[in-house]
Design a protein around this nucleic acid. Structure first.
Lengths: 344, 344
DNA sequence: TTGAAAGCGCTAACAA
DNA sequence: TTGTTAGCGCTTTCAA
């Protein structure tokens, strides 16, 4: 048996007719922002809308208005389980403002990002938030800039999160400083022999974290030889593998700094699988919620994700400036069990 | 300094003019689905679109077409970190089909769901997928049904995931069976004394899992007294607290079944925090990815999330039937370290 | 406070 | 194969 009976959605005109007013009045009544509708009429319109099960046709509204309300988030590099603190933060921030929120998920490549941005543009959203780390040597950056410029020229408002160095308003984290602070903290705890497990060579996020970390060590007169800085994919599995590679070389490592928590988890798991977890300390970066219950609890650089999202949304309501704004959000080191104080 | 210069977005008419064709031809050229455009013209249109940085105005397109392409997912009860296997699965499934994907996040209440569905309806998407567990005694169910009926009457296609028992196409998991199988598995491992940590009394998902578990035990001639079935919020923190409550009563419990993995994590963490982890076995339900690295690894009912999403999307392209379809997806027990075989 | 009417940018019959 | 011409459902001047 196959159903068919298909009516059409109730339109504003239907509501207006039922309420005995014009479409214009119905429109005004339903949007509230326009005062100057007699209370009696407003009530009748609302009533009519309800009985008809009317919902505004947002597409038509967007056409008529030229733009559609709300924030569209373009997120590159969503992990398999979808967990992403920035996305969560932006979602929350929009909810607090009761702004419609839409997510466009880009793939993992920078080129996917450009495509996703253009898809987002097609929706003519009033504001666009772009997130997902950026590569330093990326060849598609000009295309991205072009797409975003078009978007701004059309009257859209864009804010980048963590895609630093592009000519648009940006919120970034103090990656370098976080790495530096972590180095200092670990040295304070008594560690002297380090290794770094990092992500793609040209990812700016991981590069800055690594550089900051190395600089912090340097300021404490500790050097990390290049062969102790391992570079691979930016995820847990790669970190797991790299840790194996590192330890097989039988180097003398007291502490491993992984450039994000996901990778730190890979490191920890490898150490546990091989029974080395007591021997080597591990530190991460991000302080993601999903890891709050692991053992040993992870020393990491806490990032205030919600604040980052808040800053980004706050920026979208400010007028554009030349040059564009950049806000840098700082994290702070939280020492937990994975890096116990060294007693010699 | 504040910028201003705002042009408007390039329209189809602009592209058409630049390409020296009519809007109709430009439209046909850009959508490909319509053959019957001379190759030369198509090329010129594409070229023109590129130089103008044109992107289709999807809102206008939706108005003209009456609906907008793609899948809109309404997800109730997104966790703080946004991790949600169904959402991830649906996203992937849409990507595989290159369908536009939009997420509307509802709150945690059933009433939020109705509101979110109406927001989604406003977008006039061709298909709507609803997810998030349902309460058995919910008073807003009629409102939800009404909203979805309206949507279907308007020609939309809706599929529910895990909101069983409503008059729409549905994909659910075999919650009862999963609970039953888990009981059997634990009994086979040698356990005899059980407790259950469950979520909101009226959540159907957790209720079915609990009932299945109890039934499984009953078939093995094991009874669980009512005071060993604890009910609270459907999350980790509640489970953590409930575990404390349970153990403080000093009952003789060998194994705790938590009705989902997040709660199992709460149980595990409590046990670890109090040094009881060796003494009590723990089992969960869902097999979420985020927990793959915890120690001890968690015995749980594996759910094939991607398959669930696939089934749901597959359903959306089938014609509607009376009565609506229901697909039940089965999980299977995976025994891991958290439930070692009992040796007496 | 209201309504008539002219768009918004696009698609789709229809005719050429 | 192409162009003309009505819409799609809404908002928003403008005039009443």
């Amino acid at each position: 048996m196959t159903d068919s009976a298909t009516t059409r959605a109730a339109r504003l005109a239907d509501v207006a007719r039922l309420a005995g007013v014009s479409a214009a009045t119905a429109s005004r009544a339903l949007n509230g922002n326009d005062r100057g509708v007699r209370e009696a009429n407003r009530a009748r319109v609302l009533e009519a809308a309800k009985t008809l099960g009317y919902t505004t046709n947002l597409a038509a509204q967007a056409v008529a208005r030229g733009r559609s309300r709300g924030v569209m988030l373009v997120a590159k590099g969503m992990p398999d389980d979808f967990a992403n603190p920035i996305t969560a933060g932006v979602l929350k921030a929009t909810q607090r403002r009761s702004l419609p929120f839409t997510l466009v998920s880009a793939g993992t490549e920078q080129s996917d990002l450009v495509e996703a941005v253009n898809l987002a543009r097609s929706h003519r959203p009033e504001t666009l938030v772009i997130t997902g780390g950026r590569a330093a040597d990326d060849t598609t950056i000009p295309a991205l800039i072009e797409a975003l410029r078009h978007y701004e020229d059309e009257g859209g408002r864009v804010v980048l999160i963590s895609q630093e160095g592009l000519p648009f308003d940006t919120v970034t984290y103090a990656n370098r400083q976080g790495g530096y602070d972590m180095a200092t903290a670990l040295v304070d705890l008594g560690y002297r022999e380090f290794a770094v497990i990092s992500g793609m060579k040209h990812g700016m996020t991981q590069r800055d974290r690594t550089e900051g970390f190395v600089a912090g060590l340097a300021d404490a007169d500790i050097e990390v030889s290049a062969d102790r800085i391992l570079v691979g994919e930016f995820n847990r599995d790669a970190a797991y593998a790299m840790t194996g590679e590192l330890l097989r070389r039988n180097v003398n490592v007291e502490a491993i700094f992984a450039v994000n928590d996901a990778m730190a988890l890979g490191v920890l798991t490898f150490l546990r699988d091989t029974g080395d977890s007591r021997r080597v300390a591990v530190a991460g970066f991000d302080d993601i919620k999903a890891l709050r219950d692991i053992t040993p609890s992870l020393t990491t650089v806490h990032m205030p994700w919600e604040q980052i999202a808040e800053e980004a949304l706050a920026m979208t309501v400010l007028p554009r400036t030349t040059p564009p704004r950049t806000t840098v959000v700082k994290g702070h080191v939280i020492v937990r069990e994975s890096t116990p104080r060294v007693t010699r």
